[in-house]
Amino acid sequence: MHFSSALDRPKGKSYFLLWRTVFAVGLVLVLWGMYAASTSVDYIWRWNRVPQYFWYTEVKDIRASLEGEVRAVERSGATATVIIEGPGGEEERYDVPAATLRVRKGDFISPGDSLATESHSRPGLLLEGLWITLKVSALAIVGGIVLGLFTGLARISVNPALRWSAVTYIEIIRGSPLLVQIFLWYFVVGTLVNKILTKWGFNPIDPLWYGVVALAIFTGAYVAEIVRAGIQSVHRGQMEAARSLGLTYAQAMRRVILPQAMRRILPPLAGQFISLIKDSSLLGVISIRELTKASREVVSSSLQPFEIWIVCAVLYLVLTFTLSLFVQHLERKAI
């Protein structure tokens, strides 16, 4: 949304044409500058090496393990069965993909000869990292919403125990660095909890969950303030009207206040969750292989830092932009 210029001198068509052109020219200049810089620098760009870190295909030879002669090749659909008969009459069968078959009936085979090739494909490191980032962020967002909603409600409660607990939680979490909180959750709380669990014969909890807890609790504090502001922005008369009809505080909150607050809460909430996705890059320090840590590992094995870090940034953008679009969609739907 942009503010109408009705308050100022009316702007004509040429005004918009001029400044749109300025923007386009600026964009082209920046892109050209980046391209020029990237070619002049002493760096060999190998974008073709990037896709393998998304989807990795491994080609493996299927080798014979005995000496002999191919007695028969039986084809059935996409697979073929190669039957090899050794000098002593012993027989071995190999099921191989028919398309990559390299031997025919009557061929003489030495041990180690390749009969056919088999390919396995699996997600590469970057895709796995992206998935972990997505999973951790989604879990932390859900946790953050629940925690933030209840803390926000406690924050405006008349009950001092609830209100002061909420204030204490919010101030402590907002006042200390997330990195330190992650260390505390993993190295202090995590060590204690896992020690106790092992002592009682349970399996220790995966670091991922300490990461999720750290992020959810961090986000919850900010969400609480957003929820509080949203609730307080709903006109006082709404609560009075609902209560004067006989609704309880909780009923009025759920049916009347929160639905209206939601619309005002959504934009800042989107910003908070975009921050959260980016903050999840810190979880690499507790050995969670999310996108940033995965990228670092790929860089150290591929020695292609420029491409990989650019791809990494673009992947984060894809996540955050999708979230942004989703929230805009919700905003249009609300009220």
Binding site: G237, E240, A241, R243, L247, V256, A334
Partner: peptide, 20 residues
């Protein structure tokens, strides 16, 4: 009080209808 309020209707200067 909620039972009493159910028996006592109230109309406000600013209507206070639920906009959603």
């Amino acid at each position: 009080i909620n039972a009493i309020r159910a028996e006592v209707g109230m109309v406000f200067q600013s209507f206070n209808l639920f906009p959603h």
